[in-house]
Simulated assay, not measured.
Amino acid sequence: MALTHLHGPVVVIGTGLLGTSIGLGLEHRGVPVYLEDPSPTNQAVAVDIGAGRPVAEMSPVAEGRGAVQPELVVVAAPPDVTAEVVASALARWPRAVVVDIASVKSGILASLRAAGADTARYVGTHPMAGREKSGPVAARGELFTSMPWVVCAHPDATPEAVRIAKALGTDLGAMVVEFDADEHDEAVALVSHLPQVMSSLLASRLQGTDLRLLALAGNGLRDTTRIAASDPGLWVQILGANASKLVSHLYGVREDVERLITTLEAPTAPGARLDLAQLMSEGNAGQARIPGKHGGPPQAFAWLTVLVDDRPGQIARLLTEIGEIGVNLEDLRLDHSSGRNVGMVEISVLPSKHDALVAELEERGWRVLQ
């Protein structure tokens, strides 16, 4: 059993993707978890897959002292009801620390203060992890491994409450970072909410498009529209709660789009090509600032593409042989060759390992494109 900082029990209110993933992760580490959800179906699924037991089964303390008191309550409710559920949990379990995992923080803290809730035992948190799929069936206990877990301590919170909030992220294998609530909301507007909006806007242009044209789509379109498959209902709440922070970034995007349109309306005019090159260069510069593997400094990796027959076991064999060669993969992407039963495995490695890996794979019979 893994060493944990939490002892439990932990109550998780909300058994969607994140709440159930938290339950699975903690149960795997031996922390007892109890689950509650307004949807009996979601709660039953989460229980069935091992994320915890129903809150109703919390055993009574000996000598009639009442129900077991949780060490921590995690509110994994939709953003528009999070403050209400947190306030209820603070009143219901007067000795427990209560955290939420909603993706916007300032409004929740303000609502709790306005309601007179005991914010000394409340800390806002936000795990920067997720999937396009939703619901307990999509949950994974390792969902938070090596992902940022933001803890938004505030002046009202006790040191013990902050410690327990950090312990939750640590026990789930996440990288705990501290932001204040307003700073957090500004950050996620840029790195999370704006990408979602841009992806959805791009994907919306594909509606009604001739499927013959879409057959030409490659990884570029797939990569940039992947998150457009996210839950619309959830994102209506997230975008509405952080609208003021997001709008400032959208103003900037609008200026850039208008600049691009003006340039492309006269693409051969003096200075037009320079402006297009400048626009692309600005994108290069921004992309290069995104942190690299495990949150470290950006690194330049070398890529190669290996053709793999589209039959069971081939990708597993390729990865096994790369491991035998002794090269660590920095990133991996999969694609299919249009009209052929061939998969394309794009592999990223340190530049110093590229040539030796290509030579070794070719010697072992793999078809490598550089």
Rank of each mutant, 00 (worst) to 15 (best):
I261P: 12
L276N: 05
Q237E: 15
D310S: 09
F301D: 03
L216S: 09
E258I: 05
I238A: 10
V253W: 04
E255I: 09
H249Q: 13
L319V: 03
K245R: 00
G313Y: 05
G313E: 12
L216H: 10
D310F: 04
G240P: 03
W235K: 05
H294S: 14
S248F: 01
V253F: 09
G252I: 05
A228F: 01
T224V: 14
D310E: 12
T262S: 15
L264V: 07
R222L: 03
I322M: 04
E255D: 15
I261K: 14
S230R: 06
Q287T: 14
A302R: 04
L239W: 02
D310G: 07
A217K: 03
V253G: 11
D223C: 06
T268A: 12
G286E: 10
P232N: 12
T320G: 12
G283E: 01
S248P: 03
L276P: 03
E324P: 08
R273I: 02
G240M: 01
I290T: 13
T268R: 09
G296L: 06
D310N: 07
N242F: 04
P232R: 10
K245G: 02
T262I: 05
L264R: 00
V253E: 09
I290Y: 03
Q278R: 14
E265T: 11
W303G: 13
R289D: 03
A272M: 01
V236T: 13
A269V: 01
S230C: 07
R317H: 06
L319I: 08
T225L: 04
L260Q: 06
M280E: 08
L279D: 11
T262C: 14
Y251S: 15
A316P: 10
A288E: 06
W235I: 05
R289I: 04
L274E: 15
I261H: 13
E258Y: 10
V308G: 12
L234Y: 05
A285S: 11
G295T: 02
R273D: 12
L279F: 15
G271N: 02
P291Y: 07
G240Y: 00
A272T: 07
P267L: 09
A285G: 09
I261E: 15
P270F: 00
P267A: 02
I227P: 05
I315S: 12
V257K: 04
I322A: 02
G240E: 02
A302L: 11
G295P: 07
E282C: 08
H249Y: 13
G295V: 08
H249S: 14
L304N: 07
G218K: 00
K245Q: 08
P312E: 00
G292A: 03
G220H: 07
N219S: 15
P267G: 02
G220L: 01
G233E: 13
D223I: 01
R311E: 15
N242L: 00
L260T: 06
G296I: 00
Q314H: 06
V253D: 05
P270L: 05
T305N: 12
A228Y: 00
A228T: 01
I290H: 04
D310A: 11
G233M: 00
I261F: 14
E282N: 13
T225I: 01
P312A: 02
E324A: 13
L276E: 11
L216W: 03
T268M: 05
L319W: 08
T224Y: 11
S248E: 15
D309N: 12
G271M: 04
G233I: 05
H249V: 11
L307S: 12
R317L: 08
F301R: 06
P267K: 02
